[in-house]
Amino acid sequence: MNRTIILDFDNSVDSIENALRVDLASWQAAIRFGCSKKNFRQLAIKLQQDLPTSYGTVMLGSGDYHHISLLLIQRLQNIYNAQHPLEVVIFDNHPDNMRYLFGIHCGSWVSYVARLPFVSHVHVLGITSNDIGFSHAWENRLSPLIKNKLTYWSMDVNTRWANTIGLGRAFKNFTTPDDLINGFLTYQISRSQPVYLSIDKDALDEETIQTNWDQGRLKTDHILKTISSLGERIIASDITGDVSNWQHPSRFKRLLSILDKQPSIPTNTLELWQAQQHQVNLQLLSALQAN
């Protein structure tokens, strides 16, 4: 069994038996939330040096680091190519396909994944954020949607605007979490390509867990059901959405954090939330390791 990897930017992930913890605390200010492409490339070199050839699920810490999933997926390019493609399946309350003009951002990385030649399609499951609604339509990068490389699986968002410009097939809307997951798994019955699975726990509802982002409506069982159904097709995975406090040194990042309504969490509350996060992490890891 390959070891779990903890990319420890923010000390938010508790100890996991036999996991390899990679100390990346010195990278936190440069990488968290968003970073320049230069810093992103430098981190890629660092991970190339520090990660073993093979490993299990990668824990990223806060959802502020979800863009690191791109680096992990890129590492698969020597195994998979255009002739042997894979699908990327992402649980997230947000599309992570938004425009960001200053490098790469935890909310912009999906469009880069969709450009990879060995990725046949990207699915984002569990979106309830209005980031895919009409008022934010201009912020979405339309290219992967137009090219049929990206599908949003959502609830509670009016996406009729997509039909008016011919993108209706890229927007799958459902009334309940059960309907969404069943719809996705029904679609996957006829699929056989390998899957990279990325789990941002902000797709879960607040009764299940607390994150530092606005959250969706899924339950842990919805993710576990998906893992079980995809089974051995899952060839690599990561988990993010843990919670930590951080004061950005950069005024620009502080402003973006404020605009995204990220709260400062009291210490006692943070410890409680992290304990809840740890239990969900163990459930998810157990399911992934069983495949």
Results as ranks from 00 to 15, higher is better:
Y100Q: 04
Q215S: 11
R160C: 04
H67S: 05
D179C: 03
S135H: 08
Q276C: 05
G231P: 10
F134N: 02
A25H: 15
F102Q: 11
S12L: 05
R233W: 04
S143D: 13
L256Q: 11
T186S: 13
C35N: 10
D260A: 13
I127W: 13
S143F: 01
V88C: 12
I146F: 06
Q49E: 15
A287M: 11
S228K: 15
Q276H: 14
G166W: 06
F252M: 13
D260S: 12
R141F: 00
G168D: 10
D92R: 04
E271T: 13
N11A: 11
D202V: 07
W213D: 06
L20M: 14
L125I: 12
H222T: 09
K261A: 12
I6F: 09
N78E: 10
T269M: 09
L43E: 12
A19L: 03
D92M: 02
L167Y: 07
N39W: 02
M155R: 12
N245G: 06
V243E: 00
S244I: 00
R115V: 00
D8S: 13
I5H: 09
F118S: 05
Q77C: 06
I90E: 02
H105Q: 08
R21C: 10
R191K: 15
N182W: 02
F118H: 04
K147D: 15
F174G: 03
G241C: 03
G168P: 00
L145R: 04
